[in-house]
């Protein structure tokens, strides 16, 4: 839930508060043994496409301004431009499908720690406070992948201040993180996470509202076979 916060910014902060709805945020990180890797972030509003399309026809809903396609595209482009300039980040691509309301951003990194500050900075540019902090790290020698996740207390307070109608938007929303490795996974510390049959991937799914509320913690320490 780090980089995808920029999607939250682009799409749902402005859009979702009025969709009681289903949407998915997916974060995929593929780690190579040498510490480099790729990230694919997806936000999929397809399940709510009728509502989104209806809302897009309006100027504002429940007091929130509805961004136009152009505006969304522009902000996404800005995020891409920012990523391109970021240290250790290459191969940045983005794709939007306004028929199904699915957007993706993908890029490669030299070291997983390169992605640590990106979200916060993009959000800060848009004057939005991040709802959590996550630190990713990969130790080549010990072959451990770490994600240190910390929900920010104020995010919960802010969330609780929302009107029930607005909060409801997050009810059906899910967050999925998938980490893929070249080596086999020997252990994954987060009890909510699952290791794939092939033992080469770890998946964690949760409700976005639980994340914001701090009910669930997505910190994880994954040990790979040496």
């Amino acid at each position: 839930m780090r980089l995808n916060q920029c999607y939250k910014l682009l799409f749902f902060i402005a859009l979702l508060p009025f969709l009681s709805s289903c949407f998915e945020v997916i974060e995929e990180i593929s780690m190579k043994n040498d510490g480099t890797g790729d990230v694919v972030l997806t936000i999929n509003l397809s399940q709510s496409k009728t509502k989104v399309a209806s809302v897009m026809l309006l100027d504002s809903v429940q007091g929130y301004k509805v961004p136009s396609k152009q505006k969304i595209q522009q902000e996404l482009n800005e995020a891409v431009a920012y990523l391109k300039k970021s240290e250790g980040i290459t191969n940045v691509k983005s794709n939007t499908d306004f028929n199904n309301f699915i957007a993706t951003i993908s890029f490669s990194f030299k070291d997983v720690s390169n992605i640590n500050n990106i979200t916060k900075n993009i959000l800060a540019k848009q004057k939005i406070k991040a709802t959590n902090t996550s630190l990713y790290s990969y130790n080549k020698t010990s072959k451990t992948f770490n994600r240190q996740y910390q929900a920010i207390g104020t995010a919960k307070t802010e969330f609780n201040k929302l009107k029930p109608k607005d909060k409801a938007v997050f009810n059906g929303a899910t967050y999925t993180s998938i980490y893929r490795f070249e080596s086999l996974v020997t252990s994954s510390t987060n009890p909510a996470s699952n290791v794939s049959k092939s033992k080469k991937a770890v998946m964690l799914r949760s409700n976005i509202s639980d994340l914001i509320n701090g009910k669930i913690n997505v910190s994880n320490s994954i040990q790979l076979a040496k």
């Binding site: 998915e24 997916i26 999929n44 699915i102 998938i178 794939s196 049959k197 092939s198 991937a201």
Partner: peptide, 15 residues
């Protein structure tokens, strides 16, 4: 009835 796009994951968690 409306259609929508979502993802399934295989044994390798491939989308």
């Amino acid at each position: 009835e409306v259609t929508y796009t979502t993802y399934d994951y295989d044994d390798d968690y491939k989308q």
